[in-house]
């Protein structure tokens, strides 16, 4: 019994390492939305001025007040939905089963470049790892909003 447990836990322990190896082999293909260091630097600057007070330096948010940005479906999921949160703001929306009091104001005063950079930064910080947001994607979302 003890042995089976030991083996089971060894297998479990080795799983993450296996999982980590996998993307390394596929990463050789050129990725359309690669994350550039410039975008991260500029994104961090936008984050510090506009996002940090509510979502906090570690992206963990504030329980019941402001949602976390780490590993949530909104941040890691559909990019257009995420871009629209910045363009339109968000209110009274349950996120991964939790509700939050504070209003997220529309940040449509940020430029397309700033929005792309800050979202790329958020999607690659606080334990997140996801593709970059392109200026073109923000432009398309903003144009769709105006229609």
């Amino acid at each position: 019994m003890k042995h089976t447990l030991l083996i089971a836990s060894l297998v479990l322990l080795s799983l993450p390492t296996l999982a980590q190896k996998k993307p390394a082999t596929t990463a050789k293909k050129p990725v359309a939305s690669a994350v550039s260091a410039t975008a991260l630097t500029s994104g961090k600057k936008v984050y510090t001025q506009n996002c940090l007070t509510c979502h906090m330096a570690d992206g963990g948010g504030v329980q019941n007040m402001n949602p976390p940005l780490s590993k949530t479906s909104y941040v890691l999921g559909d990019k257009t939905r995420l871009i629209n949160v910045l363009l339109n703001g968000m209110e009274d929306q349950e996120i991964d089963g939790e509700s939050y009091q504070n209003v997220m104001p529309a940040h449509d005063f940020l430029t397309d470049q700033q929005i792309a950079d800050v979202l790329t930064y958020v999607r690659n910080s606080f334990g997140n790892k996801a593709s970059a947001v392109q200026v073109g994607e923000v432009k398309t979302a903003r144009a769709a909003k105006k229609k």
Binding site: N50, N102, P105, F109
Partner: peptide, 12 residues
């Protein structure tokens, strides 16, 4: 927060 025309929007 402060009765802005648009709540919590910079400069409102």
């Amino acid at each position: 927060n402060s009765c802005q025309e648009r709540d919590r929007r910079p400069g409102s």
